[in-house]
Structures are given as C-alpha cells and as structure tokens.
C-alpha cells in the first residue's frame, strides 16, 4: 500500500468548480471541470461540509470523532483515504500548513 499524499502538515482546500446537492441525506456533486457526477454518501457529505474553509485533516477528524462512534486512529485513516480519492478526482487540492 502506498504512503498517503495527505498528512497533518496539509490544509485541505475545496475546489471551486463543483455543484453540490443534498439528495436524501447523501451529497451528490457535479464537477464542472470534468463533467462527472459523484455520490459522496452521508459521511462523505459531512466531510465535505467540514472543509468549507481550508482546514487540516486533524481538525476534520476531531469534529467527526465528537459526533460519530469511531476511534480517532480509524477515523483518520479512513478520512485520509477518502480525501485522497477527492484529490485524485480534482475535487479538492492541498496546501502546506505554514510552519
């Protein structure tokens, strides 16, 4: 398994060219950039809501752990995997946190 690109030293920044809609509790998104539709599901939608402003992975995870019954380590692992997918599809980009 390859090392994740996203780490605690990154800020997660939403791409601007996405149209998002709530459908039955799930988040569906159209990327204007590539013309594709995505379903982020319920938790993915929650993550999307939490990155409205640029934030670190740790901030996203802290918020989710306070709301969902999940261990911090497991949550971070799965959130990073999900964010990597968003990054691959060009739905988000990452910036280095200033030291």
């Amino acid at each position: 398994m390859s090392e994740p690109t996203i780490s605690s030293k990154h800020l997660i920044v939403r791409g601007k060219e996405n149209i998002v809609s709530d459908m039955g509790g799930e988040k569906v998104m159209l990327s204007v950039r590539n013309g594709r539709y995505y379903n982020l599901g319920e938790i993915g939608g929650k993550i999307w809501d939490n990155i409205e402003a640029p934030v670190s992975v740790d901030q996203v995870v802290d918020k989710l752990v306070s709301e969902y019954d999940v261990a911090q380590i497991k949550c971070k692992e799965e959130v990073v995997s999900f964010l990597e997918l968003l990054l691959e599809e060009g739905l988000i980009h990452i910036e280095e946190v200033n030291p």
């Binding site: 539709y37 995505y38 379903n39 599901g41 938790i43 969902y68 968003l86």
Partner: peptide, 15 residues
Amino acid sequence: MKKVWQKPTLEVLNI
C-alpha cells in the same frame, strides 16, 4: 448518543 460511523466512500456515478 453518537451516530454510527461508516467508512466514507466516493462513488463515481455512471453518467
């Protein structure tokens, strides 16, 4: 009461 966690997934819709 905390909500049930499910692994987040990204589904690329077939259109």
